[in-house]
Nucleic acid binder design. Structure first.
Lengths: 349, 349
DNA sequence: TAGAGCCTGGACAACGTTGTCAGACTCGGG
DNA sequence: CCCGAGTCTGACAACGTTGTCCAGGCTCTA
């Protein structure tokens, strides 16, 4: 029993002593260190008999390769980082899963963090992931200046931005057609006779919110409808503010007959508000929401394919890692107008 | 310029050459290696002037500490693993976020994987995480035999199971009161006069499904209602099967007047089926679903607090790591019956 | 049977960091 | 002027793995 008290400087939390290493396995199996490595990695050049002995020792000791050491040696971690805004947002669920699936297909693990829509926290997270030496990053950016990533990009960290573009650096971006989707959604309302259409969206510094607002304006302008400031409400999307905004639009001397909502959270809140209102107001929302088809009236939405966003981004990431991808590109995925009744409500007055 | 071509054995993918190390920083700043380490880690014993020089060199080179090396040396990774069934399931969103928040509060990152309800994949994932030397694991188990974790537990990997208990090992478990919740939900239906109540749930090998079924049976037995096999349908929860099951219960010579659904996915499908039916059928579902309050009739549910499950589990995990937690425990969190009308429907015939 | 070539196994260094320890230097008091 | 205490710094080993390279034993052929 040599080496029983090797690690005297271990942190106190490591209670039960430390794990066996390849050295221990080698000693027990009576072979050399590298032979164990070969067995563990399925490399050729080991006789069946030796392999058996090594396997036995591995089993007996409960050996598990230490990937930290492996990573240190090999330079690749086989893991990618995903930074998004909020793990609990239903929009990011399918997106995360798609990224995870692609990662899994490439033998990589997913490290996952939420920025909570805070630029500093995003940076902190991204840099922590870089310190872990993730092979690549999928980032839904909160901030708008990503020059802090330059050393990382130079060092070969594959990076793809999703849902919103990167700020002040040249990087791969995968977006939805926020502008076109919003324009079509609002045009749908106009086609059903609406002229007074409200817009409730996220803070305009968020790219998606700005683009959707732009789509809204364009649709109105294309139809020759003047855009009234009082019908646009941009800001945080917590229920209280959205509720107030909706109620203002619905009351007053010149109430809207339809509302276009800028994302799933806003849509849900506005549905609640409308449910309390006597007057029937048309609604089209950006992002699909579960059960939207069962509400009465059903909720018409501009649906983005969150899974496709994630999949596309992750696939580009691994193509960057392959080296088969050369120049950063901006990819825009189409949205789809799903009509379910709410948009078809004619103006009530 | 020494050391420009040090890493000849790097993988081909590392395109842009390699990252600067502390050694490089030390050389540039004209100080010793350890001094750089001290600056990077904010350790005392460095004059402001020296620190400035080091910071400058770090900045200039774009140095970022390599946490793989750090981990190897220190034995702690400051990361925990979360293995769940499906990242995209709305039930796991809040749970993941809660785990992430606790992790963040303890300065740890979250590595995240989906088992897709497959025991082998769960094991593969868990062991991959252990190879990464995560400090701890939060596992929503798919399998029912976790003896493969024994060496890891001995080695001090903190582990907490959530939502379902561990199989054949002694470990911390945080559960919802599935039995009691289901019993109360079914009792609610009985209290409103229902006698013929169907149950549609997940595969009985899944602990939560079995417990909820048990609650269902108990409620019926307590009320002296015989339990009919034809009113219980257990199996995979894809929409097709659930739909068939619901339709069978609703037709035939002896149709149910109420349905108790075993999880959120089942509930959603059954709502769809009921929406197509003329006859009004009462419904109580396990798990809350978004917008349930806006459906007509509103959907009564047995709500679990997914965030509390995640938070409790993660907190126990870090207490294990602190050493302040000694014996594994089984914690059961209460559920809450949220009545929203659907459960109050009287039997239609 | 000797020599060439192949197969298996092991010694060793390196990956980038941190803990240990000792050396150099400063400062103040005796 | 010297010494001790204190401050700052750096050399070195170790963490556990993998790549390189060489040694020794084997087979096969001439």
């Amino acid at each position: 029993m040599p080496e029983t008290h090797r690690r005297t400087d271990r942190l106190p939390g490591t209670r039960y002593g430390s794990r066996p290493t390849m050295k221990d396995v080698a000693a027990r199996a009576g072979v050399g260190l590298k032979t164990v490595s070969r067995v563990v990695n399925g490399e050729p050049g080991v006789t069946p008999e030796t392999e058996r002995r090594v396997q036995e020792a591995i089993e007996a000791l409960g050996f598990r390769r230490n990937d930290s050491a492996r990573v240190l040696r090999k330079g690749r971690t086989a893991s990618i980082g995903l930074v998004l805004e909020d793990l609990a947002d239903p929009f990011y669920g399918p997106l995360s899963r798609a990224v995870e699936e692609v990662a899994r297909a490439h033998g990589a693990l997913l490290i996952n963090g939420s920025s909570a829509e805070d630029a500093d926290r995003e940076q902190e997270l991204v840099l922590a992931l870089c310190a872990r030496r993730v092979d690549g990053l999928v980032v839904i950016p909160a901030g708008d200046d990503h020059r802090y990533l330059e050393p990382e990009l130079k060092a070969g960290v594959a990076t793809v931005f999703v849902d919103r573009p990167a700020g002040r650096i040249d990087a791969d971006v995968v977006l939805s057609d926020n502008y076109g989707g919003a324009r079509d959604g609002v045009a749908h309302l106009i086609a059903h006779g609406h002229r007074r259409i409200g817009f409730i969206g996220d803070m305009p510094r968020i790219h998606t919110a700005a683009e959707r607002l732009r789509g809204y304006r364009t649709a109105l302008e294309d139809a020759g409808i003047p855009v009234a400031d009082s019908w646009m409400s941009l800001g945080v999307t917590d229920p209280e503010r959205v509720r107030r905004a909706a109620e203002e639009m619905l009351s007053g001397p010149n109430p809207v007959t339809a509302i276009f909502t800028g994302n799933n959270r806003v849509t849900v809140t506005v549905i609640r508000v409308l449910a309390e209102h006597a007057r029937r107001v048309a609604l089209v929302g950006f992002d699909d929401i579960e059960l939207a088809d069962l509400l009465r009236p059903g909720v018409t939405v501009v649906a983005q394919d969150a899974a496709a966003l994630g999949r596309t981004a992750a696939e580009r990431l691994f193509r960057q890692l392959d080296g088969t991808l050369l120049r950063p590109e901006r990819i825009e995925l189409p949205t789809r107008l799903v009509t379910r009744g709410s948009g078809e409500l004619p103006p009530a007055d």
